[in-house]
């Protein structure tokens, strides 16, 4: 049961607001030592898996380009374009993005979206601009809510779209695991069974996005 001490450290550390990097390092050390590893071995294991997972950080390479475009007025231009479309609203823009994100992810084009390259420079400013055109200047509280919805929409679309694509990591992981356990799983059958959930995700999150416009109106009245 001492093995679960790391989980306890994470929960307590995160909820009292300590720096997450510190909390994670302490939780790792505690778990490793409880599992019978030497502290130096835990540090080595940390170093190895940190370096092995550098691929997660490749997305930061877009920052110089995105920053360059921001200083040249990319967000302002996106906002201007949206403000001229009368039918645009925050909820509808995000609904359209949800559909596009799910469809492109299902075709294996995950890199088309993402928080650094799409949400921050384009999607969030467009949704905020649409709301501003309809409701007037947004207090920070309302603007922040729209941004959080924009990020949530990117995640939801990606997660419940990507598994419809045959060659995505999770499908290959499932196939490998089942094979080890004597079940032969063809990837297309796994991908097929991801479709009902994908449709359900569009209905559930899409409905919430359509309700967002009403919620924003209420928030503005507060």
């Amino acid at each position: 049961m001492f093995l679960l001490s790391g989980i306890l450290i994470i929960v307590v550390g995160f909820s009292i607001g300590l720096n997450p990097l510190l909390v994670v390092a302490v939780a790792g050390l505690a778990t490793g030592i409880a599992g019978g590893l030497h502290p130096l071995d835990v540090i080595a294991l940390f170093g190895k898996s940190f370096v092995d997972s550098r691929y997660i950080a490749i997305v930061w390479l877009v920052l110089p380009v995105i920053g360059l475009l921001e200083r040249s007025g990319l967000r302002e231009r996106a906002q201007y374009l949206i403000s001229r479309i009368a039918a645009a609203s925050a909820g509808r823009i995000l609904l359209l993005y949800l559909a596009l994100r799910q469809i492109t992810a299902a075709l294996g084009l995950l890199t088309l979206g993402g928080h650094a390259q799409m949400v921050r420079p384009l999607i969030a400013p467009m949704a905020e601009a649409a709301a501003e055109t309809r409701l007037g200047a947004l207090p920070p509280r309302v603007g922040n809510m729209i941004r959080a919805y924009a990020a949530a929409t990117d995640n939801t679309g990606a997660f419940f779209g990507e598994d419809v694509f045959l060659a995505v990591g999770s499908i290959l992981l499932i196939k490998g695991f089942l094979q080890q356990n004597g079940v032969d799983a063809e990837p297309w059958r796994l991908a097929l069974w991801a479709i009902p959930t994908a449709l359900l995700a569009f209905v559930i999150h899409g409905t919430r996005l359509l309700l967002l416009d009403r919620r924003l109106k209420r928030e503005m009245a507060r």
Binding site: L3, L4, G6, I7, N19, P20, L21, V24, A25, A27, G28, T31, G32, A34, G35, G36, L37, V42, L45, F46, G47, K48, S49, F50, D52, S53, R54, I56, A57, W60
Partner: peptide
């Protein structure tokens, strides 16, 4: 620091796996 957190958590996952959590 949040830029580095995903890799830290991946490392924690490896420790969890090695310890048998």
């Amino acid at each position: 620091w949040a830029a580095v957190l995903p890799q830290m958590l991946a490392a924690l996952g490896a420790v969890f796996a090695a310890a048998g959590v």
